[in-house]
Amino acid sequence: MTEQAVLEVNFPVKGGDFAQAGDVSTKLKRVLQQLGLETSLVRRIVIAACEAELNIVIHAYSGSLKARVSPDKVEVWAEDEGPGIADVELAMQEGYTTAPDHVRALGFGAGLGLPNIKKNSDFMEIETTLGKGTTLYLRFDHEQQVR
């Protein structure tokens, strides 16, 4: 049996750093493109990863984006140290946001991030502890099995 090829990457994300918001997702995009993944799959992952990255920047203190790319799926973990989410069901609703005014002035905080992540991923799970932090687990299945 041959060993399954798997690639793991891990990028730190700084909370509150709006100037660099999106940079990590752009780096992840490049990795996925270099691995030759399908454009439509890359798009879904990158859009979801960017929303997750932004949530760390906006709502948490610090965190990271990890990805594991396997022949049949891509998994992403967005982990942060932050306030946690009090009511996950509510947070998942379109339009629900706790983003403060100065963040909304920058064009974020429409309350569409988590719903958009759900739309673009094949599986999504939120683990959160108030006062400690949040971990978002996402899975994306390859539309075509890669060799």
């Binding site: 090829a5 490049r30 691995l35």
Partner: peptide, 20 residues
Amino acid sequence: SPRPILSLDDDFSEAVRKMS
């Protein structure tokens, strides 16, 4: 049509190896 230049290899395992 796309003219992608980024992909390291058509073969996934090979691309992963090159990436590492």
